[in-house]
Structure formats: C-alpha cells, structure tokens
C-alpha cells in the first residue's frame, strides 16, 4: 500500500509517516503531482496557519490537484480545515470539498483546545470498531461546524463541532490520529482498508 503524504509547510508531518510505517504502509512525503496522483491513499496532514498554507498550496497548484483526486484521501487537523469552504483564520478561502465554515473557538474557555476528547455521534465505516468511549488527541484553536450530511463524528468543547467529515473519497479528522494511541491507529487502519 503506497501512501502519499502531501508535503507543504505544515508542522510535525514526521509523526504521520512514522504512524503509517508502524501500520506497515509504505509512506512517503511528497509534493510531486504524479506520485500523489498514483498513490493508493493520500494523506493531507497539517499544523500551522490557514492562509500561509493555502498560499503555499496555490503556488504549487496543489490546491487543484487535491480537488481532482479520486483515491481515499484523509485530511488531518489543519488538513481538515483547509478542505472546508472558508476559515475565519485570517479570513481564508479554502478548498471547498466540504460546504462547511471553520470558526474560531469563543473565549469562554482556554484556547487552543489541547488534549484528549471523546468522539460522539459516530457514523462511518472509517470509525468501525470505535464507540463514544474512544478518545482522540486535539490541538486546535479553530473548529469546523457540523454538517447534517458530511459530519461523521462530533466532539464537544464549549460547543459541538465536526470531529470527522466524509464526502465521497474525502475524509477528514480534526484530532491527530497519529498521536491518538490505539484509537488513532484503528482509524488509520480503517482508512488504509477502505
């Protein structure tokens, strides 16, 4: 199984590669169009700031490529947010795979939302074998709103938000599966087995 991890200016992608290696996948970090197009799976990781990331993707036309891909695709953290319509983070138009808005958490509690939070309202083969006792590790200040059709799990911190989204071949997760212990490994394994 060849997995292309999209290379852009996102932090801590090494952990994603290591997690995939632990699961036996052949993962490579790349921004090469052909390699990404021909991969069995594509992972779009992320940590960083939305507008800088979008500019970087556009400069390399990776935005167009991402919109055209047909194989199972997984956005992680900022990767999820960039797959939405628009992010409040520096008023950034994003890739529009999910017709969902990304907003900043209100200041009622500590921001960023850092730590382990459980998945709720799970509904997807991607989450097979997991239930509401499954926890995932989050680090984020912005969240994706809930979509009636595309949200496949929610999480709660001050408000309910999309923990995972799914539309066609595109999947996305706000938490970090590569850092979410056995629950994260389960999700990555399910993704590789789709």
């Amino acid at each position: 199984m060849n997995v292309a991890v999209i290379k852009y200016n996102a932090g801590n992608v090494q952990s994603v590669l290591y997690a995939l290696e632990r699961l036996g996948a052949n993962a490579s970090l790349t921004d090469d169009w052909e390699t990404i197009k021909n991969a069995d799976r594509v992972i779009f990781p992320g940590q960083g700031e939305a507008s800088t990331a979008m500019s970087y993707l556009k400069a390399r036309k990776l935005d167009q490529l991402i919109q055209e891909l047909k194989q199972p695709f997984l956005g992680i953290c900022l990767g999820l947010q960039l797959l939405c319509d628009h992010s409040e983070e520096n008023d950034t138009p994003c890739l529009g795979i999910f017709p969902v808005q990304v907003k900043k958490f209100p200041p009622y509690d500590k921001v960023p939302h850092i730590g382990w939070n459980n998945l709720e309202n799970l509904k997807s083969p991607l989450l097979e074998g997991l239930d509401e006792t499954a926890y995932a590790y989050y680090v984020h200040s912005f969240y994706a709103e809930i979509h009636p059709d595309y949200t496949i799990a929610t999480a709660h911190y001050m408000l309910d938000f999309s923990a995972l989204l799914h539309r066609d071949n595109y999947y996305a997760m706000q938490a970090h599966p590569e850092k979410s212990s056995t629950a994260g490994e389960k999700i990555l394994t399910n993704f590789l087995n789709i």
């Binding site: 590790y137 850092k179 212990s181």
Partner: peptide
Amino acid sequence: IAKTINIP
C-alpha cells in the same frame, strides 16, 4: 521516540 510512541 517518535518512531515508537503513539501519543504526544
């Protein structure tokens, strides 16, 4: 550590 451990 990063190769081995699956938590932050």
